[in-house]
């Protein structure tokens, strides 16, 4: 009897874990595909279909270390743009400005970040709405 209960509880835990995982996976897929569409319409012209950038004019999105380090600021960059400045990406200096996308909502930015953060060699996992929203509130 005791064994049965343990087995049952074990099974229950297994089920919860499995279903939670697939929920998370589904969330990821939803964010990722939604983000891919936004990327295509808002970012790809400059940053390229493979996030390769454009020579020395536009930086690529392949600098995994930079993206990780600035994870909390990425939403601000997308929404409010980057003013004339020099940033170093993949060891190369890029000079210029990035236009703002003030019409993008927090959920759209979360999707976009999930897409960029898990493409072009980046592995950042899902960047959920709550996280993006909280980071956006801290934009300067």
């Amino acid at each position: 009897m005791k064994l049965r209960i343990i087995a049952f509880i074990g099974l229950l835990i297994c089920m919860v874990v499995v279903s939670c995982q697939s929920d998370a996976e589904q969330d990821f897929k939803r964010y990722y595909t939604g983000g891919a569409a936004i990327y295509k319409s808002k970012c790809q012209n400059c940053h390229g279909a493979k996030g390769e950038g454009l020579l020395n004019l536009i930086p690529p999105l392949t600098d995994t270390a930079y993206l990780k380090k600035n994870k909390a600021k990425l939403g601000c960059f997308i929404k409010y743009g980057i003013k004339e400045t020099i940033i170093t990406i993949n060891g190369k200096a890029y000079e210029g400005a990035m236009p703002a996308n003030v019409d993008l909502t927090a959920i759209e930015i979360a999707k976009l970040l999930t897409y960029v953060g898990n493409s072009f060699g980046n592995i950042m996992g899902t960047i959920a709405f709550e996280e993006a929203d909280a980071d956006l509130a801290k934009c300067k």
């Binding site: 790809q44 012209n45 400059c46 390229g48 454009l54 004019l57 536009i58 236009p99």
Partner: peptide, 15 residues
């Protein structure tokens, strides 16, 4: 040069 919309892709192709 400061064109945010179609110029980068135009010149990507022009290259």
């Amino acid at each position: 040069t400061t064109c945010p919309s179609i110029c980068p892709i135009m010149h990507r192709n022009m290259l």
